[in-house]
Nucleic acid binder design. Structure first.
Lengths: 241, 241
DNA sequence: ATTATCTATAGATCTATAGATAATGC
DNA sequence: ATTATCTATAGATCTATAGATAATGC
């Protein structure tokens, strides 16, 4: 057996270690490749090649590509989700019953951004991967599965912060937030080129400085307004107030 | 030659007509399939099958998949782009030198939403297709090519509407807007499930009622703020003021 | 005469599985 | 004894092209 090089380290002693290490390498490689090319732009062969193992070993561990895809998502989704749940819990206690929109959004968004800023390349690849998943037809259901609890918790706090606001406005507002957030996580480089280098899509610090405040103001405008520039139908569709 | 059924119509008389009709069917089918499965989730064979022609005819017209993909994008991108350029031009004249953020965003966003509301299924498929492209690594460059002029025009007006605002804030604000907008265009159904049916991702009217106003308030908060909830680093990174 | 469309086909790639081999585990 | 990994391979699918066929065009 031609043993592949594992970064200058001697080979793992136990089978459990070996298994864990190989699995991790596979997930890392898959995460990176999926983040670049999407679910169907990557074959198990590509991943195996990048890791330096035979394709059949991919099947041995993951059965098929869909399974691998889910494993990549599952590996990190729990961490993101529970970190944010904790942050929201903490904020709820801290705010003493009167949450603000910005406070809630900071717990939700900035907590995650910090993870991508400090968590290393793997986490940033995961973020770019999630970005694609969230705008794809097949992937969106995976977001439900993993993130509904945090999102519904956030929405609960937002309702408290915006007592006069309709459910529809809050849910739409959340959809805008998540769209902007996921887009940013993709780091496609478009903003770099568009701004001639003034903004860098890798600069999550810059995002953290701006995103929650921006979105909070949007929510408040959406929910607080009582009239808009005369525009037929603007009020017609807002039920539930 | 087993002639495929073309919706109850007799066969086209001229070759030019026949060519145009086949091309259109191919682009429609590809647009639909790409919007559902992404670039690499679709084969030329899939498209040919949906149209009812042989795969080799796809090669005859488009050479390869990348070409087809570009053709799908190009077919409609010019229309969106010029409609919005016109709307922005018109708004610039109308506002008499003092544009508002919301006015500019309405020209930019609502003009497009109207197209998707009234333009039929093909346009909505295109929108969902663009949604995926905008969050993908390979696709983002195509956005540059087709949409930079409109976007830079919008940004010019936003600068006028927000004279004290740094370029970085304006570009980041735009990135949030486009992220939210593109996400909504994907109509993944996630918001439907999340809100237990209160919101429907097909309801672009509801988006039109909310998106521009929401984003305008975000911009104003981002650019108009002079202090934020004490947060280390919040001001540090905002250059250019 | 030209061109839209189809047939046939080669080569590449991908998926998936059976079975062998070489480690680790007691 | 178990299991991590590899070899071999079959079948499916995809890409791409050459060349035939059946329309339209004058």
């Amino acid at each position: 057996m031609a043993r592949r090089l594992t970064n200058n380290r001697r080979r793992p002693r136990t089978k459990a270690e070996q298994r864990a290490e190989t699995l991790e390498q596979m997930l890392d490689a898959a995460e990176y490749l999926f983040s670049k090319h999407g679910l169907s732009g990557v074959t198990l062969r590509d991943v195996a090649l990048k890791v330096g193992v035979h394709t059949s070993l991919m099947h041995y561990y993951f059965a098929d590509k869909r399974r691998l895809f889910e494993a990549v998502f599952t590996r990190r989704a729990g961490t993101t989700s529970s970190r944010r749940l904790d942050a929201l819990d903490h904020y709820e206690r801290e705010c003493g019953g009167s949450p603000t929109v910005e406070g809630a959004l900071r717990a939700f968004l900035d907590t995650d951004l910090e993870l991508y800023i400090n968590g290393g390349e793997g986490w940033r690849n995961f973020a770019a991967f999630a970005s694609q998943v969230s705008n794809s037809q097949e992937g969106a259901a995976m977001m439900d599965l993993h993130f509904d609890p945090v999102v519904l918790k956030l929405i609960g706090i937002l309702k408290k912060a915006l007592p006069g606001c309709s459910d529809a406005d809050i849910f739409w507002g959340y959809d805008f937030v998540t769209g902007a957030f996921m887009h940013v996580l993709g780091r496609t480089g478009r903003i770099d080129r568009l701004s001639s280098g003034i903004c860098k899509s890798d600069d999550f610090e810059a995002v953290k400085d701006r995103l929650a405040g921006f979105m909070a103001a949007g929510f408040i405008a959406l929910c607080g307004h009582s009239g808009k520039p005369a525009r037929a139908g603007a009020m017609r569709r807002r039920g539930g107030r």
